[in-house]
Design a binder for these strands. Structure first.
Lengths: 338, 338
DNA sequence: CTGTTAGCGCATTCAT
DNA sequence: ATGAATGCGCTAACAG
């Protein structure tokens, strides 16, 4: 059996209340008893049970975090940012990996609720009516990362302006002189990296009066290197070839470049490539990748900061933090050769 | 106020015991009451409080995980593996990032204990007498990843044979014909990636009767790309140059290659490079990296499996899982040119 | 200053 | 089959 406050009290010859008082320094206790008690604590190796404390105070000191996967540096950056703020605010984080499944996510949200999380951060790409319902009824403050919270007024969000960022990236290609520009995009159910970045791409084309071409847009379900490879393969199969391809993320861009290298297509000589995320990969690949930089770590920090703020005030609010992004020009882009 | 079992009981016109019984299906309850209660649960949106349950059952369903950082794919792979097993065993994961500080880690272990974790997994590089003490007295089963647990008989470990793996990598260089082989190694306080891989390097040299050269060994405190860059710079400053360099990890290898490229040294023409980890980077960098593959995800799975096994049996044990590794030959290595 | 007591929310005896 | 009562480990209000 684990040692309880009662064991300590007995050993020190005092009441449990007195033990509690010295451990929490909640009330003055005579020096003599204090010493006896500390000695008993030492000898028994007593550690107060945080579960019992939580039950009394209705404060668990726990925040729940859900991410679809952790292997992607974007998500691990988020987690690291969240964890650092949580830690320095005295909170512990419960991490759940949803694997992109809506059902899993909802189940985790339920678990977070029964486990009395004081705050919840969700960094997910999927969204459903049940999600919406859950966040509406959730008793604790919540922050959603990476996608607007819709009309939810009691939920904070930390995002970047994906549409604008994508628009700027494609505009840069147009300014270089490109007019035949393709895109390897993410899935339609992914609001941020799927839909919004595609919308930004369309914005830039529209602004330059460039009619969009179906054959130059490949839709992928995942954001892995292989998706870039397959997406580029699909686009390359079109009769007329684009001179530039904007990719929904760096991994896709790398995969695209791998396919092009296999086919003997020179980057950026024959085809320019732009990525998104500026993960470490982007600097290391050859040629180094022109891409959109943003800061997942900082995003996690912001999200956790908004959350702790709400937890302190004991009330939910609906702030939106839009983090900066920036086009980083490297060596995978050049004016078209013709 | 949050809704409790009492509210449900009142609303359904029954005692709290009956509500508890239908929710846990612990005893038969008449169909009529059962329906009334379920209705009351629906209407109130009642969720049982897991904290109160934990207090009764002395089971929190929580496992604590400590990693030094999450940004490195090795650690995120571990976490993903652990999380997947924990989840399917009905446990939730509390994640703590220690930032390599011994004090932080010890504090987290204390927190894990007060928070009544049912199991603890530590993937750390540092070690101290206090660590040892903590694991000896810890009431819950523990698994240490990445380093032998010393003489701790009640702690499981999941490791790879770093020394042998490093030995094989360097032996491969020797078989290619190299005799002037350097190493960019990790810090001395890092048992696995620092000391053991260096020991393996020395083993291979010794076996081939190659005297070690101080100038060809660079010691780095971190495992980042910049460390490889600086380490290679240091080694390149030696009067006589090596023809091959074994690196303690892939990032270091990439950094080394970046320096060499800047200096116009061809890889593998003038100098061969071997990495360690086989992270995604290794396939993508040019030239692609010869490296030692192992499986962090699988390691996390093994660790979590050993942990859940112990938690089920309610007793600690001292198993050791040694996971496989494998040299993957790519394009960064070749016979020496002379 | 110190001890006794009443819960925190729930599961589980023990009665009925 | 159901309800009342006890207690998990601890804190806080109440007495002394």
């Amino acid at each position: 059996m684990s040692v309880t406050i009662r064991d300590v009290a007995k050993r020190a010859g005092v009441s449990i209340a007195t033990v509690s008082r010295v451990l929490n320094q909640s009330k003055p206790v005579s020096e003599s008893l204090r010493k006896k008690i500390m000695k008993a604590v030492e000898e028994t190796g007593y550690r107060p049970n945080a579960v019992a404390r939580s039950l009394i105070h209705k404060r668990t000191g726990l925040v729940g975090v859900i991410i679809p996967e952790i292997y992607n540096p974007y998500f691990s950056g988020l987690v690291q940012g969240i964890e650092s703020i949580a830690q320095q605010s005295g909170y512990s984080v419960m991490l759940a990996v949803s694997g992109k499944s809506v059902e899993q996510e909802l189940e985790m949200l339920q678990i977070f609720q029964t486990r009395q999380m004081e705050g919840v951060i969700l960094a997910s790409s999927r969204w459903s009516r049940e999600h919406r319902r859950w966040f509406t009824q959730a008793p604790m403050p919540c922050v959603i990362i990476g996608r607007p919270a819709g009309s939810l007024s009691s939920v904070c969000t930390a995002i970047i302006d994906n549409r604008k960022a994508a628009y700027e990236a494609v505009r840069y290609l147009i300014q270089l002189g490109h007019r035949r520009i393709g895109m390897i995009r993410g899935p339609k159910w992914d609001r941020a990296s799927g839909e919004e970045r595609y919308a930004g791409y369309r914005d830039a084309l529209r602004e330059a009066d460039i009619p969009p071409r179906r054959q130059w847009v490949a839709v992928r379900e995942e954001f892995q290197v292989i998706d870039g490879y397959q997406g580029m393969k699909q686009i390359a199969a079109a009769k007329e070839k684009p001179t530039a391809v904007f990719c929904a993320c760096d991994r896709i861009a790398v995969g695209a470049m791998q396919y092009l290298e296999e086919q003997g297509v020179s980057v950026p000589g024959d085809l320019s490539i732009v990525g998104f995320d500026d993960e470490e990969l982007a600097r290391i690949v050859t040629p180094s990748l022109t891409t959109v930089r943003h800061q997942p770590f900082e995003m996690g920090v912001q999200a956790a900061t908004m959350l702790t703020e709400q937890m302190l005030n004991q009330q939910k609010m609906g702030k939106e933090a839009v983090l900066p992004h920036q086009l980083v020009v490297r060596n995978s882009t050049a004016p078209p050769s013709e």
